Structures are given as structure tokens and as C-alpha cells.
Simulated assay, not measured.
Amino acid sequence: MANTTSPALLLEDYSIEMTGKDIPGLQEAAPFLPPGTRVNVTFLGNENLELRLAAAKAVRDGGFVPVPHISARRIADQAMLEEFLAALQGQGTVDSVFTVGGDPHTPEGPYADSLQIIQTGLLQKYGVTEVNISGYPEGHPDIAEDVLWAALTDKAAALTQQGLSGSIITQFSFDEDPVLAWIEKVRARGIDLPVRIGVPGPAGIKRLVTFASRFGVASSAGIAKKYGFSITNLLGTAGPDRFITNLAAKYDETLHGELHLHFYTFGGLKATSEWIRDFSEKQRLGRR
């Protein structure tokens, strides 16, 4: 039987995402973010080392916890990886990272996936103590399901073998049921890492539908059903209040283990962080 976790409790210790170019957005969002919030800094192909480092430093200087991404297939060689890690270490933003295979179909260097990054031993050499890895509750449009499960199992085992802590950060979803079912399968495989469930932050409905189609996580009709808007009218914005409320209602710690939320900021950092603050406050007031 599921417990009575409230949405407000599920929102504690959430994480949020930004790009290297979004330092102004972070500064706007800062008043709404709890001190110590984990802020992931993406590793995009159109951003360079300086942008990524500046963003990670801005996160730290704002009183938050930077989690820089490392995109394996975008790393040209070992020297590039070491340069990035050394620079992060030099500015005190290397403790926690997120490793992911990345978008390019063909690797730009020797690393085909994030497991190979973990297995280099270079992360520990430069002071990394926590490595976050990716999970795909609704699959990946370009990767077979058995390959995804093997990768997740191998990465979790590699972290244990190397004495690294970590968590699983999932792709965003609009439907709590496949997410929770997937987490139960993760636990059944003996993987007990905390899971940070990907949540699409508030954004324009058209934008949400576009991202869902791009990443293969939901149909337009599926999003409309879960979010309660008409598929014939995609004007306006939508937030994840139903998703989070339903997730909290069905969360059973004995089945699902430790869960947190990770917000993808499709509508912007400020809009997302302000929405989280307001939604959390409404939930707390409703419980009094």
C-alpha cells in the first residue's frame, strides 16, 4: 500500500537544470531557489569550456551545488576530458558530475558512452566523489530497451566498484505510472541508487508537445490527457502539478526507494523555480 507522501515533501531537495549560457537566468531564479539546491549544467555542442566553467562557478557563487555534465561522445580525447576536470577542480566545482552518452551518433573521440568515462578512473583523480547517471523510464528513441538496462546495470556496478556515490537522473515524463513501474524494475535488479525523476517545468503547451515528440516520451494526446488540456487548443502554458501530485500519491518508499525530482527548465529557470516555490507553498498551506 502506498504511503501518504505529500507533493511538498517530494519536492524537498529537488534539482534543476541550466545551460552554460544561462547565467542571467540563474541570477533571476536565485531568489526562488532554496540554498544548496543542486543545479545541473549541461554540456551542449554549441557551448565551449569557458561557458561551462563560468556557469558552474556562478552556481557555486550563488550558494547552490553545481553538477556539471560530461557528454561522453562530445569528448575529443583524454586530454580534453582532463582539461575539463582539472578546470572544474581548480575552481571548486568538481565534487558532483553527471555523465551521459550525449547526442552525437558518432563519438567525437574515444568515449562511446558514459560507462567508459566512469571506468577511466579520471573522475576520482580530479576530486569527483559523486557521479550521477541517466535513466529512461519510457525508453530511448535510438537505443534498444535491453541495451538501456545493461548500461544502467553496468554503470551502477562501476560506481560501487570504484567507491563513488551517485544517483539516477531520468528523462522527463508526463505520466507517473510508467515512471514508477520502471523504478520498481530498477529496484528488482538490485540497484538502490537514489532516483531523481525528470519533471518538465512549466512551459508553453506547444513547447512541451514539441519536446515530448523529440525525445519520444509521450504523444500529444497522452500529454493532453495527463495535463488536462484540449489537443485542439495548444495555446497557453501548463505546469506539472498533476504529475507531481499523482506521483506523490502513488510513491511507496518500500517499493521505490529514495526519490527526488529533477526539473527540466523548458520555460526558463526563473519561471520554473518560481513555480516550484509557489506550488510547494500551496501544498504546505493545504496541509495546515
Rank of each mutant, 00 (worst) to 15 (best):
V39C: 08
V39T: 10
V39I: 15
N40P: 01
T42D: 03
T42G: 05
T42K: 08
F43G: 06
F43T: 04
F43P: 02
L44Y: 00
L44R: 08
G45D: 08
N46H: 11
N46K: 09
E47N: 07
N48S: 11
L49S: 11
E50D: 14
R52Q: 10
A55R: 05
A55T: 08
A56M: 06
K57Q: 14
A58Q: 05
A58L: 09
V59W: 01
V59E: 01
G62H: 10
G62T: 10
G62K: 00
G62Y: 08
G63E: 12
G63T: 09
G63S: 10
F64C: 07
F64P: 02
F64D: 04
V65L: 09
P66Q: 03
P66G: 07
P66E: 01
V67R: 11
P68C: 10
H69G: 02
S71I: 03
A72G: 03
A72E: 06
A72Q: 05
R73N: 07
R73C: 04
R74L: 13
R74T: 11
A76Y: 00
A76H: 14
D77L: 12
D77C: 14
Q78M: 13
Q78L: 15
Q78S: 14
A79R: 15
M80I: 14
M80H: 14
M80F: 11
L81T: 11
L81K: 05
L81G: 04
E82I: 10
E83I: 09
F84T: 14
L85V: 08
L85C: 06
A86W: 08
A86Q: 13
A86M: 11
L88V: 02
Q91P: 06
Q91M: 14
G92S: 13
G92D: 05
G92Q: 10
T93Y: 03
T93W: 01
S96Q: 13
S96F: 00
S96L: 09
V97K: 02
T99Y: 01
T99K: 00
T99R: 08
V100N: 05
H105M: 11
H105I: 11
P107G: 07
P107V: 05
P110K: 13
Y111N: 03
Y111S: 01
A112Q: 15
A112Y: 00
A112C: 11
S114K: 00
S114Y: 02
L115D: 09
L115C: 11
L115A: 12
